[in-house]
Design a protein around this nucleic acid. Structure first.
Length: 404
RNA sequence: GCUGGAAUCGUCUAGUGGCAAUGACAAGAGACUGUAAAUCUCUCGCCUUCGGGCUUCGUAGGUUCGAGUCCUACUUCCAGCA
């Protein structure tokens, strides 16, 4: 079972440490989005330097390229990418929601690869197998996001997520036992044989006992669904908690509106002694304040790095678009108070120039800054909970950032 | 000097009788939340009560109901011949 120590609590908010084979994560923490085993525009050393504690990759993307066998061969995600620290994988479930042409059935999901159009099937079992091969410390259950906001669709997606969770737990358990027993049992492949399907990875069943895939424990988070409906969220949290996973992902959240009530509902039901990851939230600083205040421990979001590549940069006074003409002659740092490599060494006029000339370095420096900014916000939230200054920190930060 | 060819938004470009005029770039602005994202959207002659009005395709004339498109002259540029 994943070890999670809580150092301090204040209401639902808590400060803790998640212990993984690849190191500890001091929570609350922002996890860098490394979808394709890289944080776009940044090296792993840059990620370490800016204070990132963990990264999250996506199973769907890694299955397509380079294929999970290769990552397994390399010794797992942390080794392959030279990150060496704690890693998460998302299950690929989010792609059900975000890709076109997905065919969903009770068995699983058929996607068309966005790379070459090949038909690709992912089931709860194959997602677990793939995540196992990728070797992240923490895996997400293969979940189902609703196709609309309606109560019916949300409920349907939640119930399917629950049924799939049962299969994820079972498969994860088999793989886990297989690991301890050096994979002495083969895993049966599921899915229709009549279609051309790219298999993410499956247990070949012929590895000798001494050939352990990885010598460390891997953990499973159940994913809570239910959209904006608190009765569904409560039902989902209860169901997930009963399955006794190592931790929890909270999925299907897209805006901070109503998030406080939702998290209050969910995190009151979820067992206190297990970590909770708020999936995909953290583009807006308010997401992180509310998330931490209502009991979430880790966050991941593509927003900071995507914003960075598109020239939208965080400052304590809100985001600015560095490409705007008004920064042409602005020789001051992006953010005076910032300790990142970008702000310590470069000014706005230079960043503006790099963006206008489409230099690669523009995206590198901007990504360093934005990722540092968001990681730091969460680190300071942690400190403020420890110091009992969370409330004043939140108020002063949000007032200045959102000009309210 | 002669003979061809060419001049259209900041730049390149489409356009051969119904045109405020094509596309790209540049420029200006916006969006982005478990990354099909180094992406996408909008604006880009002037004015507008958003119906429209006005002025535009090197310059000046002409033909025509109507000209960026056809004719004449001029200006500039390019190529070839001297």
């Amino acid at each position: 079972m994943l070890k999670f120590d809580i150092e301090k609590k204040n209401g639902l908010a808590r400060v803790g440490v998640i212990h993984t084979a690849h190191g500890d994560i001091k929570t609350p923490a922002f996890v860098g989005a490394a979808t394709r085993a890289t944080v776009k525009a940044l090296t792993m050393q840059e990620m370490r330097d800016l204070g990132s504690q963990a990264i999250l990759a996506n199973t769907y993307h890694l299955v397509l390229r380079p294929g999970v066998d290769l990552i397994k061969e390399a010794g797992g995600l942390a080794e392959f990418s030279s990150w060496h620290g704690p890693t998460f994988t998302d299950s690929g479930g989010f792609q059900i929601f975000s890709l076109p042409d997905v065919k969903i059935s009770e068995e699983g999901v058929k996607f068309k690869s966005h790379i070459d159009g090949r038909l690709f099937e992912m089931t709860p079992e194959s997602s677990m197998q793939a995540q196992w091969a990728i070797g992240a410390d923490i895996h997400m259950a293969f979940d189902h996001l609703a196709k609309s906001e309606s109560y019916e669709d949300m409920k349907e997606a939640m119930l399917r997520t629950h049924r799939w969770l049962d299969r994820c737990v079972e498969e994860h358990s088999k793989l886990s036992i297989g690991s301890r027993n050096a994979f002495s049992e083969g895993i049966t492949e599921r899915g229709s044989a009549s279609i051309s399907v790219v298999r993410p990875w499956r247990w070949a069943g012929r590895t000798r006992p001494e050939e352990k895939a990885f010598g460390y424990e891997q953990y499973l988070y159940a994913v809570v669904q239910g959209g904006t409906f608190n009765d569904l969220r409560a039902e989902s949290a209860k169901y997930c908690a009963e399955k006794n996973p190592d931790g929890f992902g909270i999925g299907g959240v897209f805006t901070a509106d109503g998030m406080d009530e939702m998290l209050k509902t969910v995190n009151t039901i979820l067992p206190e002694n297990k970590p909770r990851h708020l999936l995909g939230m953290g583009q807006e600083p308010i997401d992180l304040f509310i998330g931490a205040e209502y009991g979430c421990d880790t966050f991941d979001c593509v927003g900071p790095t995507r914003m960075a590549r598109n020239g939208s940069l965080y400052t304590l006074d809100g985001r600015i678009n560095i490409k705007n003409a008004k920064y042409t002659h602005d020789f001051t740092p992006l953010m005076e108070e910032c300790g990142c490599e970008c702000c310590k060494n470069y000014n706005k006029a230079y960043l503006h120039h790099l963006f206008k000339t489409d230099e690669i370095t523009a995206k590198v420096l901007a990504s360093i800054h934005n990722e540092f900014f968001i990681v730091s916000v969460v680190d300071k939230i942690r400190e403020s909970i420890l110091n009992d200054t969370f409330k004043s920190y939140k108020e002063s930060f949000l007032k200045r950032y959102y000009h309210k």
